[in-house]
Write a protein that binds this DNA or RNA. Sequence first.
DNA 1: TACTGGTACATAGCAACACTGAGTACCTGA
DNA 2: TCAGGTACTCAGTGTTGCTATGTACCAGTA
Lengths: 109, 109
Amino acid sequence: MGKQATEMLKGTLEGIVLAILSGRSAYGYEITAWLRDQGFSDIAEGTIYALLVRVEQRGLVDVEKVPSEKGPPRKVYSLNAQGREYLNEFWRTWSFLAERLEQLREGGG
Amino acid sequence: MGKQATEMLKGTLEGIVLAILSGRSAYGYEITAWLRDQGFSDIAEGTIYALLVRVEQRGLVDVEKVPSEKGPPRKVYSLNAQGREYLNEFWRTWSFLAERLEQLREGGG
DNA sequence: TACTGGTACATAGCAACACTGAGTACCTGA
DNA sequence: TCAGGTACTCAGTGTTGCTATGTACCAGTA
């Protein structure tokens, strides 16, 4: 992934994280590791933590502190009702964008 | 399109405009009008002009000033070789992102 | 004991980008 | 003369992801 990805991730990364949380609860370190596993090799740890703070402040997720066997306590996030609504809106916006881009790619402009 | 679109467009809008230019030459006002026609209702004129200045400075497009019958002269942009290369890279990054998101949407996380 | 390394989170400063809002300039038609 | 469509420009703002650094907990090992 190159420099273009950095800008393209803006706005999208938030949706990605919320989509992950829609399937199961997770904590920051876990999400970062999962993303890297999926090929998002350049995603910085700090980015995910900052993102999680933002979505928490907006009331899209619930948080629970859970002790870990291997280090400091984990902050486990789960998507709440408001977050699900926001995620639906995200998918609508994404679909719109993806459709337009697919048309552009096929039509060549 | 809501507020989420603003952030999601970052990085993507550039690819969209370059994709348009890969099919045919165009000028700013025309591109803005076309995008609005395609449903990108909130895209500000200033945004497109600023974007065009950026891609020009990076050497991705060639510019030609053409007189208009209806107003000030048009700055007609066309994609050059370097721009095509950059656009290919854009499509690769986009494909990567789109695949991951499609998986997430289906899998639910 | 001291040190390394994995786990887990936090944050200040930076760069890039889209938006807002205002402005300039050309031309036509009422 | 003035409104309105065409066409481009630019300063200032907010959001976002990245960089770099720091804190803290724990296990294994030399």
